[in-house]
Design a protein around this nucleic acid. Sequence first.
DNA 1: TCGTCTGCTATGTCGACATC
DNA 2: GATGTCGACATAGCAGACGA
Length: 241
Amino acid sequence: MEKDKNTIDSITIGKLIKELKKTYPDISSSKLRFLESQGLVSPKRALNKYRVYTKNDIKRINFILKVQKDFYLPLDIIKEKINSKEFEKYFKDGKSIENMQLDLGKEFKEKQKNKDLTSDELKKKLKLAQSFIDDLIDYNIIESRDDNGKIIINGDDIQIVKMAKELSKYGIHVKHLQMFENFAIRHSSFIQQIIMPLMSSSKKDLHRKGKKVALRLENDLSLFHGLLLRKENRKFLEKNK
DNA sequence: TCGTCTGCTATGTCGACATC
DNA sequence: GATGTCGACATAGCAGACGA
């Protein structure tokens, strides 16, 4: 216990709370115990059964609090990510929490990492034909704006361009992707209908809940869509054995 | 339709015990 | 004796199920 208390690598819950309060004033010991009960962290125990938080535990907790605060993600989704092999690798490699956060879903990654690019910059960066980018804009797959004669591509759309490039290797043309854009619009409208009562509320917690529900539905609907797609493909493969 | 029960999420509180 | 920590239980707000 004495050793645990005095080493920098491991601290008790009270000391950890003091540190975390500098960034997260609302943090409490009950919250840390709750995170443990939900399997998001597993602090070791001293001889007196006190929790002992190691550097890795602290990293995990910082990560959890950060994504909760910034992305409103529910704990089960955070748990899924934090217990993945990818995250273990991050810990082993000693990479920063910021890097881990960037990996939490491409949508967040792109928001943090990608800056707006001109059409020319994007063309060079991804080695694309101008006509390919023009088609993506024309078919409303990505958004662009005119800035003093330069075509600017929204940073959030760059991942979409990358994926479109990948799909083109299979002979999938931009015009085919419009079908998916239409699906996305319909799915988004569906989600909007569901969360509208929450988002139109003046209560902050309901507003926050609306964001959480939207993120969850994005994940669940993507998963659901994937399962249906897989099911149909299996049928086809069975038929054509 | 209404009331009640149950479950979920994300904490907060409490009394007992350990440590400083 | 003050402070820190424990596990158990309580709470708030919401949603869904179910019976009357």
